[in-house]
Simulated scan of single mutants.
Amino acid sequence: MKNSRIICLLFAISITIFGCKKKEIQDGDLSFGLHVKDGKYLADKCDNKIILRGVNMGNIYAVNFGLKELEEIEKTGANAVRIVLEKQYKDYSKGGVVTALTAEKIEPLIKSCIEKGMIPVLELHDYTGSADISADLPKATQWWITGEIKTLLLRYNKSIIINVANEPDNGNASAATYRDVNIRAIKTLRDAGYNCPIMLDASGYGKDHTIFISQGKAILEADPLHDLLFSVHAYWPTVGLYGNYSDAQITDNFKALKQSGLPVVFGELAVADIQNAVSYKINYKLLMSLCQENEFGYLAWWWGFNNNPGANNLLSMTNDGLFNGLQDGGKTIAVDDPNSIKNTSKRVCK
């Protein structure tokens, strides 16, 4: 009888252990770190819902890789920074000589963000606007799983988001092609050991939200961890060179994305769409309001530069890279609006 009780106890323990392990993997592994809860929303290691509120930072264009700028971004209360990376960058500490990006350069950015309670969203910018996503997205994926880059990032698997490639389609790809090539990219990253959330940009330079409505569920189901974020770049001007977006249409777009049930992020939200050096105004306040209403993340494009002011442009939130230098729409997005980063951001648990 005693032996039988011991056997039953051991059996019960094994069921509990393996049952929990299975659930953790399915839910993104709560003990692991950042995860997409039930395929619906981003959560931290404490299982708190995290709605991304932050900015894009062009670290590869900044002197000292933008470490000073990260200190300034922290003052907004941002809980995330989308870090622009390229395989080759101009090393301004050496007169702008083109240099291969190394893990040694990336790690301080990751550590700085984590120390400040900001999620590093790492994105590869090389294949922006690709006319052949089938050829170029695999190239981007390969970079993430090669050598020292993979070794570094796997050490931070609990704390990062991988944005495979920035806007890797210019609108040429069919829905089926977009779906299949992204599914292959996800499989490659998972097979390489990445258990972190993976962010995918929409087709058509990130602007075509309908690709997620038609293909998002299939892509999500293909990920064994269901640990994906679907990123729209909302260059939707009221009157623009490549399309006009009324407030009613934008609201309908949000409704459709909400009804999809997918974990949606607006990975680039800006005050204007710049085309051929012309600024086409976007109703960014409406976008911010709808993001808050629908619990969608947003990341403003982009912060601005302190030590490389020549990299600033019409969309720089601050022309000196400093918090006190925030101006106009950048200040509105970061601080002043009721739906600003400062007013709505909640940071991850530690």
Rank of each mutant, 00 (worst) to 15 (best):
K94F: 12
I114L: 00
E104G: 14
L101M: 15
E107Q: 14
I110R: 04
Q88S: 09
A78H: 07
E74C: 12
R82Q: 05
G96V: 00
L101D: 13
E72N: 07
E107V: 09
V81Y: 01
I114P: 06
N79V: 04
G96Q: 03
A100Q: 13
I114F: 04
K75G: 10
I110M: 03
V84F: 01
G96K: 02
L109T: 11
I73A: 13
G77K: 10
A80K: 04
T102D: 10
L109E: 13
K105L: 07
N79L: 03
K105V: 06
S93L: 12
E115G: 13
E115S: 14
V81K: 00
C113A: 03
N79W: 08
L101I: 09
D91N: 02
T102A: 12
I106N: 14
G95L: 08
I73Y: 13
V97P: 00
S112V: 04
G77N: 12
K116Q: 14
L85C: 13
D91Y: 02
P108V: 04
K111P: 01
M118G: 07
G117S: 02
G95W: 11
R82D: 10
K87L: 09
E72Y: 08
N79T: 09
E115F: 03
K116F: 09
R82F: 05
R82N: 03
C113D: 05
E74D: 15
G117T: 02
K90F: 05
K111S: 11
I83M: 12
S93K: 14
I110D: 05
I114E: 03
L109V: 11
K90E: 05
A80F: 04
T76L: 11
K90M: 07
E86P: 06
K111C: 02
C113M: 01
N79D: 11
Y92A: 02
A100M: 10
P108R: 00
I73R: 12
E72A: 05
L101A: 14
A103P: 09
G96T: 08
P108F: 05
E115H: 09
A100H: 11
E107L: 00
E104C: 08
K87G: 12
C113G: 04
E107D: 09
I73S: 13
E107Y: 03
A80N: 06
K105T: 07
S112H: 02
T76I: 02
S93F: 07
I106W: 14
S112E: 10
K94G: 06
K105G: 06
Y89I: 07
K90S: 08
M118A: 00
L109K: 00
G96E: 05
T99F: 14
A100P: 08
E86V: 02
K105D: 10
R82L: 00
T102L: 04
A78Q: 06
T76Q: 10
A103M: 07
I110A: 00
K111F: 02
